[in-house]
Simulated scan of single mutants.
Amino acid sequence: MYREWAPDPAIAGRVTCLWTSTADSATTSLVVPDGCVDLIWGPDGPQVAGPDTGPKPVRMSPGDRYVGIRFRPGAVGEVFGVPVEALRDLRVPLAELGVLPELTVETMQEALTVQLRTAPGPDPAAPAIAAALRTGRSVAEVARDLGLGERQLHRRSLRAFGYGPKTLQRIVRFQRALRLARRGTALAEVAVASGYADQAHLANEVRRLAGVPLGRLLNRQ
């Protein structure tokens, strides 16, 4: 069972939600790219889940419980003491990063509130970068619209999100497609509205980013 709830208002500007997932039976949960960074408590202790570029299957035994705090895309900054690109596609034990005390689920929001005040913050342009790329315009067009050179956009995207603008664009487009498909939108319409060339392009991208067909991915949600 999975559920989400809103974070404390003190961290809501940087954190999109808190969540918990509990396995009633042996199962494999599929984590797909969403541009986010999570701090997670699970059977192996607290760890940081960096921004993913591909699917991450998580095997869960009956009774396993995970609790997490999810940062908004581009909002993590250096709260964990390292650039976000250093966490890309990784799961790093919190103790190895050495920037936060041995947190518990009960104390995590209070401790993060303090850390967020002192750690280097996110790029204030990150939301605008993600929003512009979500429209489907080319990286060159987005850079021009934001008043940036393409190399500068690449550096800022890498620093804020953990990957360059082309990868970020694929991920935000993929997430938009998932949201529309979950609402019951016809897949041909999903493809057009999300900026794909056609439904086949959508299907291929979903397989690359999620590792499974869209129908199977939707059934997992």
Rank of each mutant, 00 (worst) to 15 (best):
A128N: 08
Y196S: 01
Q175Y: 11
V139K: 01
V32C: 05
T107A: 07
P120N: 01
G81D: 02
A10M: 04
Q47Y: 15
R88C: 13
L133P: 03
G184H: 01
A126M: 04
N219E: 14
P101K: 08
L94W: 05
A6L: 15
V190T: 00
L87S: 05
G215M: 02
A132W: 04
P83T: 11
V84S: 03
L217Y: 01
V82E: 11
V37T: 15
G149D: 15
R182K: 00
V105M: 07
R220Q: 03
K166T: 15
L90T: 06
D123S: 07
R176V: 01
V99P: 02
A126V: 09
Q169W: 04
E102S: 15
H201Y: 10
G136P: 01
T107E: 11
Q199N: 09
P120F: 13
P93H: 03
Q175H: 13
V15D: 08
Y196I: 00
R14A: 12
A12C: 08
V206W: 10
V212T: 04
D24R: 10
V139N: 06
A95C: 04
Q169M: 00
P57R: 04
L187A: 03
R155E: 08
L217W: 14
V31W: 06
E85T: 05
D8M: 05
V37N: 13
G13L: 02
L218G: 00
L168R: 00
G63D: 05
S29M: 15
R155A: 12
F71P: 06
R183N: 03
V82Q: 07
V190P: 07
R151T: 09
Q47S: 13
G147W: 07
G149E: 10
R3P: 09
E141A: 13
V48G: 07
A128H: 10
Q152G: 00
G74Q: 13
V76P: 02
P9T: 11
S25T: 10
L30S: 04
P55M: 07
H201A: 15
P7N: 02
P127T: 13
S194N: 00
A126G: 03
P124N: 06
D44G: 12
A131H: 10
R155I: 05
A23H: 14
R70H: 00
